[in-house]
């Protein structure tokens, strides 16, 4: 299938960042987040799973906080944000939103 080229990567891999000081997530936190990515709408399930498979081991505390905040949205609100129909109120979430939209 043809289609538009994949959009530019909004969250470059942390391995390239060379930033040893970032606190990576502990396994428990990641496990909890992975389960909370199970949603009531298939659209959200698919996007969140793609995102976690690609980036899950690569998230730091700040990323996790942003993702947690988005996961607190209702399924309809979250899908509206991912589909680009609405923007989250908190601008600090912009990087994570861009990453989910690209997933």
């Amino acid at each position: 299938m043809t289609g538009s080229p994949p959009p530019a990567d909004p969250m470059p891999s942390r391995a390239d960042a060379g930033d040893g000081a970032r606190a990576m997530l502990d396994a428990t936190r990641l496990a909890r987040m992975r389960w909370r990515c199970r949603r009531g709408m298939l659209e959200n399930d698919i996007v969140l799973t793609r995102f976690l498979d690609a980036r899950g081991t690569d998230l730091d505390e700040a990323d996790a906080r942003a993702l947690d905040a988005l996961l607190d949205l209702t399924d309809g609100e979250l899908w509206d944000v991912i589909a680009g129909r609405s923007e989250p109120a908190d601008a600090a979430l912009a990087t994570m939103v861009a990453a989910l939209r690209a997933a």
Binding site: M1, G3, S4, E43, I46, A83, G84, R85
Partner: peptide, 13 residues
């Protein structure tokens, strides 16, 4: 919303 779904999940516009 159909356009959004098609782009996101089928990679077609």
């Amino acid at each position: 919303s159909i356009r959004e779904i098609a782009i996101k999940f089928a990679n077609v516009d």
